[in-house]
Structures are given as structure tokens and as C-alpha cells.
């Protein structure tokens, strides 16, 4: 996820983001508890925004936990969940129950004091955002949502007074996404992420399989 490296450090300190694999893994009974553990290392309750790129049913969308550090009664920065989806036609509401379960598990794992009832009241919102025109653009839209949200999210917003000013259907145009995609190659690359496939795989004596372990 190199897009994150394009932002200044002080911005990155106020946010957290998950690997796009995590959300779907969370729904798998073998991995769910592990994912909650991994999330614990992200200190989500000290962050202004927590970005959760989602890939489920071969479709990308973006969940943002907002103001998780604030009290549920906060008037200026009410905690809420925003789901940004470029294909409203296929029903993004199907993600709500998983997102709520995750929200609850995150609170339990960090021993937060919010009650189940309080968490149930936290709003799950699907703002009207620009929609994709073709069948294969959802991933690019998610990247562009991230970029623009990070650039323009205000210091404070209270969802009961409406969405942040920029979150509407006319947020950006198709042409803007296209030109953003053209420039994706110029994003900084983390050398650690690159696989070193230049050297051949060593012969087998570096590893042995243990049968019937335990």
C-alpha cells in the first residue's frame, strides 16, 4: 500500500490503516481472533481516522472509523463509521453487520468501557460518493477516496450536522480518477516491500518439514 507513503508524517501519525486482506480474513473463523490481535498493535483508539480497505465478493470498498478516541457523546467529533463504496447498486449495507462486529471486538480487545448499547448507537453511514462507470475500477476509486479524504478531512466534523463538506456525488469527476491512476506509478516505493527474486531459491537443506509435530 504505497499510497500511504505519499502523505506527510504528521498526517500519518493521526491515522491508522489495515492491510486490505484483514477485513475478509476477519470473517474467517480461523483468522478472526488473530486479526483482532493484529489490529491491537495499530492503537486505533488514539487515531483520528482508521482506514479499512475492504475486498469482499471481489469488490473493493473503504470503511473509515472516525474519531474513535472521542467519547460517544462528543459534540464536535462524534465517533462514526463511514463506508465509501463506488458501486451502491450492489448493496454496500451487507457490510454493516461485519463492521459492527469488528467495532465491538476492537473495543473488547482493548478493554474499552463503552457498552454494547453505546456501540450499537454509533452510526454506520454510506455517503453519496462518486460512482464507478466501468466494471473494474473499484480499487482505483478506493485509492482515490483515501487520497482525497486524507487531504481534505477537516479537523472536526460532527456527523449529526451532515457529512463533511466534500462528501457528495460531485466530490470528484471520472477524469480526475483517470489522471490519478496514470500517476500511480510515481508513488514512492518501499524497498522492503520488494521481493528479491533475483537470487535463485537455495537448495533444500535450509529447511526441513517436521511430520507429526507434537
Amino acid at each position: 500500500m504505497h499510497i500511504w507513503r505519499a502523505f506527510p508524517e504528521e498526517k500519518m501519525n493521526s491515522i491508522a490503516y489495515f492491510d486490505p486482506l484483514w477485513f475478509e480474513l476477519y470473517t474467517n473463523k480461523h483468522y478472526g481472533p488473530k486479526v483482532v490481535d493484529w489490529i491491537k498493535a495499530k492503537s486505533v483508539f488514539s487515531k483520528k481516522y482508521v482506514f479499512v480497505p475492504i475486498v469482499m465478493w471481489s469488490h473493493w470498498s473503504l470503511l473509515i472509523f472516525c474519531h474513535m478516541s472521542e467519547s460517544p457523546d462528543s459534540k464536535t467529533n462524534t465517533p462514526c463509521m463511514l463506508l465509501l463504496d463506488s458501486l451502491h447498486a450492489i448493496g454496500p449495507t451487507r457490510l454493516e453487520s461485519i463492521a459492527r462486529r469488528l467495532l465491538f471486538d476492537m473495543h473488547v480487545s482493548e478493554e474499552r468501557l463503552e457498552s454494547k448499547e453505546q456501540l450499537k448507537k454509533m452510526r454506520f453511514l454510506i455517503p453519496n460518493v462518486p460512482q464507478q462507470k466501468n466494471g473494474d475500477e473499484c480499487g482505483f476509486y478506493v485509492l482515490y477516496y483515501i487520497k482525497l479524504f486524507l487531504e481534505s478531512a477537516p479537523e472536526n466534523f460532527n456527523i449529526s450536522e451532515g457529512y463533511p463538506y466534500f462528501m457528495k456525488k460531485e466530490w470528484f469527476t471520472e477524469e480526475e480518477v483517470e489522471s490519478f491512476c496514470k500517476n500511480l506509478d510515481t508513488l514512492p516505493v518501499d524497498l522492503n516491500d520488494l521481493d528479491d527474486d533475483s537470487a535463485s531459491v537455495d537448495s533444500g537443506d535450509s529447511v526441513e518439514l517436521i511430520e507429526n509435530f507434537r
Binding site: N28, H30, D197, G204, V207, E208, L209, I210, F213
Partner: peptide
């Protein structure tokens, strides 16, 4: 993977790719 576990002894300073391909 999905609850199935396999154990390996692996030389620490060799590329992890060896383990994964095996």
C-alpha cells in the same frame, strides 16, 4: 491455513522464500 498447521525447522539466515516454496 484454515486451521491446518504444518511445522518446519528452518535455517534462520536463509531466505524465507525457501520455506514458503517448500
Amino acid at each position: 491455513q484454515d486451521g491446518d498447521e504444518v511445522y518446519f525447522r528452518y535455517v534462520r539466515n536463509k531466505k524465507i522464500q525457501n520455506l514458503l516454496t517448500l
